[in-house]
């Protein structure tokens, strides 16, 4: 049970907002030592873990092309494009992206979207621009909120779409673990089919929330305008923020 102290290190470290790189390294050392591993074994585990998880970093290869098109005005063009589609509000852009992301992941195309490939260059600027078209320049708080929601939408779409695809890691992990450990013969297709009800719930819940972002933005903008007209309001609160 002593090894659970390593978990505590992580929780306390994140709660105190210490640098996650240090927190994770210290937690690894503490857990390993308490679990009876030698320093050599811990470093071996670190090395093996790093080598085995390199595929997570491959998305960084996409950054040069994203930077190149952004330099030439991609985000501006995305905004311009949305400016001509009056029916696409912020909420509808987000809900539409959720649907597309979930549908493409369900047929196995997980890596065609993502935070670097689609959210930063296209979805987030479009979602923001739809609000700008309606209200003019957005306060920082509102634009941050829209961008964070766009990132969350990518995650929800990906997580609850990919499990419908039979050849995905999660489905194969379930079948291989259960088959070898408990001597079952579970078909991947059965597991994938049982992911559909949750996928529909995710689409409904997050789709509904996406559409509600419009109301949230409207409320924030009303509050912002009211604040701007009221007495004693200054831009100070925008500036003191780090």
């Amino acid at each position: 049970m002593l090894v659970l102290l390593g978990v505590l290190v992580v929780v306390v470290g994140f709660a105190l907002r210490l640098n996650p790189m240090l927190v994770v390294t210290v937690a690894g050392l503490v857990t390993g030592l308490l679990g009876g591993m030698s320093l050599h074994e811990i470093l071996d585990a670190f090395g093996t873990g790093f080598a085995g998880s390199r595929s997570i970093a491959i998305f960084l290869l996409v950054l040069p092309v994203i930077g190149l098109v952004e330099r030439n005005g991609l985000q501006e063009q995305a905004r311009h494009l949305i400016g001509r589609m009056a029916r696409l509000t912020t909420g509808r852009v987000l809900a539409l992206y959720l649907l597309v992301r979930q549908a493409t992941c369900a047929i196995g195309l997980l890596s065609i979207g993502g935070h670097a490939q689609s959210v930063r260059p296209i979805v987030a600027p479009m979602a923001e621009a739809a609000a700008v078209r309606k209200y003019g320049p957005l306060p920082d708080r509102v634009s941050q909120r829209i961008r964070a929601f766009a990132a969350g939408t990518d995650n929800v779409g990906a997580f609850f779409g990919e499990d419908i695809f039979v050849a995905v890691g999660a489905v194969l992990l379930i079948t291989s673990f259960v088959d070898t450990t408990y001597d079952f013969s579970l078909r991947p297709l059965d597991v994938a089919l049982w992911a559909i009800p949750t996928a529909l719930c995710a689409l409904l819940i997050h789709g509904f929330r996406s559409l509600r972002v419009d109301r949230e933005v409207a409320r924030e903008m009303r509050a912002d305008h009211a604040g701007a007209e009221g007495p004693g309001r200054s831009d100070a609160d925008e500036q003191v923020r780090p």
Partner: peptide, 10 residues
């Protein structure tokens, strides 16, 4: 990747 390492140690 650091978190993947921690997972392995865990």
């Amino acid at each position: 990747q650091l978190l993947a390492m921690l997972g392995l140690v865990f």
